[in-house]
């Protein structure tokens, strides 16, 4: 049976969000017999900026809801538009990226539709009846739960970088413009000013990540993570424990809600591997772990486990590469 899947394609600064493309590539590369469509909400100008990219996405169709009222993200307006679209096109499954906007838009839309929603998933599957099975970390990342819903469409938000971008050939989706009545919606807020943060800690383009944890013992030793990352042009990262001790800023912590990474190579120094962390790094191509404890959880969840003192190995690497 063909399953109809609708993906909300989020656009920021006239660019399609990576996670939207990750979801498309995951569906296209994992499942057959799917009718896959995208939904875009934006103002005219933004639409004309992304039109060409939209027209090549490997989708069967793209619904475009354009109106200049959508020039900034207002959750009340966007959720009303999605509500109307879903009522009209009746997908079996509806997916969206668990971006900051997505994490607001999805529950508001689900609440309007009176349907179930699984937040922040790191895995998804479709059962024999075409139902969505969404898997997410819960209990502070200590447990994974696979969740389905009694209501239709099955609805989930997907955590960025949970899926590798696969090579999927371009498509030629049918573009369909939609327009819905959004007058009379009063629950708007006023954005007085907006400050975009720097993307220096953007994990999405990191090929190699050098990460440190408690096994490095001191803040001074942790500095070597930065040193090594710098030497080989990699991104530094930290475990929750290292962040809590003040060795590294929270902005480079891997594994908390929303912070998954998918580099080609992830090297963990002195990280024992709390489940939240292991989930956060699970879509890395290759994982090397250096730890004195051969029984640490990460030593069973990596490709190369080196039983050694992380500090010494780091030091040796730095002197070798300097």
């Amino acid at each position: 049976m063909t399953s109809n899947i609708l993906i909300y394609i989020e656009i920021n600064d006239s660019k399609i969000e990576t996670v939207s493309k990750e979801i498309i590539s995951k569906i296209r590369s994992s499942f057959n017999d799917i009718k896959l469509c995208g939904a875009v909400i934006a103002d005219e100008n933004t639409i004309s900026n992304v039109q060409e990219e939209l027209s090549k996405l490997p989708l069967d169709c793209v619904y475009i809801i354009n109106d200049n009222i959508f020039d900034e993200f207002q959750v009340c307006l966007y959720s009303k538009a999605l509500y109307d679209l879903i009522k009209e096109v009746k997908p079996d499954i509806f997916l969206m990226g668990a971006t900051p906007d997505g994490r607001e838009l999805a529950p508001r839309t689900a609440s309007k539709l009176e349907i179930g929603l699984t937040a922040d998933c790191t895995g998804l599957d479709i059962d024999n009846d075409g139902k969505l099975l969404a898997t997410r970390p819960t209990y502070g990342g200590k447990l994974m739960a696979t969740i389905t819903s009694k209501t239709k469409p099955g609805f989930a938000t997907i955590r960025p970088h949970s899926f590798k971008m696969m090579n999927v050939p371009n498509g030629n989706p049918m573009i369909e413009y939609k327009s819905y009545d959004i007058s009379g919606i009063a629950c708007l807020t006023e954005i007085l000013n907006c400050f975009q943060k720097t993307v220096s800690e953007d994990w999405s383009c990191a090929e190699i990540i050098i990460s440190g944890g408690l096994g490095l013992k001191t803040k001074e030793n942790f500095q070597r993570i930065y040193k090594l990352a710098d030497l080989i042009n990699a991104k530094p990262a930290a475990s929750r424990a290292a962040v809590e001790l003040g060795w590294a800023p929270a902005s480079i912590q891997v594994g908390q809600t929303g912070k998954s990474v998918s580099p080609k190579l992830y090297i963990a120094f002195g990280i024992s591997g709390a489940m939240q962390h292991l989930v956060g790094i699970s879509s890395s191509d290759k994982i090397i772990a250096v730890n004195t404890d051969r029984n640490a959880p990460i030593m069973k969840a990596c490709d190369i486990a080196i039983v050694a003192d992380a500090q010494n190995v780091l030091e040796s690497l730095i002197s070798n590469l300097s």
């Binding site: 179930g116 699984t118 447990l143 994974m144 739960a145 696979t146 969740i147 389905t148 209501t151």
Partner: peptide, 9 residues
């Protein structure tokens, strides 16, 4: 509406 199908580590 949501049902936890399974929970695992």
């Amino acid at each position: 509406p949501t049902i936890v199908k399974k929970a695992f580590r």
